[in-house]
C-alpha cells in the first residue's frame, strides 16, 4: 500500500465519523483535532476505522503520536511495512 492509498484511507475513515470534513481544507501538518471536531467517542471510532481499513490495532499508548494527518500517515506506513 503506497502513501497515497494510506492517505486516502485515513481521510475516508475520518470522514466516516465527521462527514462535514472538507479534505481540501485540511492542513495535513497541523493538529488534526484542532481542525476537525472529534470527541473521544469519535476518535475511538476513527481508530476502529483504521483497524478495519488497514488491519492494524493501534494501542492507546500510541494515540499521542497521531497528531496530524501527516503524522497518522507516517505512523501507518511504518506499521504496514
Amino acid at each position: 500500500m503506497d502513501e497515497a492509498q494510506i492517505r486516502g484511507g485515513v481521510i475516508a475513515a475520518i470522514q466516516a465519523v465527521a462527514p462535514e470534513l472538507e479534505p481540501d481544507e485540511l492542513q495535513a501538518s497541523q493538529p488534526l483535532r484542532d481542525q476537525v471536531d472529534l470527541d473521544s467517542m469519535d476518535w475511538l471510532n476513527v481508530i476502529v476505522g483504521f483497524h478495519e481499513r488497514f488491519a492494524v490495532d493501534i494501542p492507546e499508548t500510541d494515540y499521542a503520536q497521531l497528531t496530524s494527518l501527516d503524522a497518522i500517515v507516517a505512523y501507518l506506513r511504518a506499521r504496514l511495512r
Binding site: S40, M41, L44, I47, V48, H51, D57, I58, P59, E60, T61
Partner: peptide, 17 residues
C-alpha cells in the same frame, strides 16, 4: 482502564466516560 484496554482489541476498548 489503561491496563484493561491494553488487553482489549481496539473494537472493545472502554472510554473513560
Amino acid at each position: 482502564l489503561r491496563d484493561g484496554n491494553a488487553r482489549r482489541p481496539v473494537t472493545e476498548r472502554l472510554l473513560p466516560a
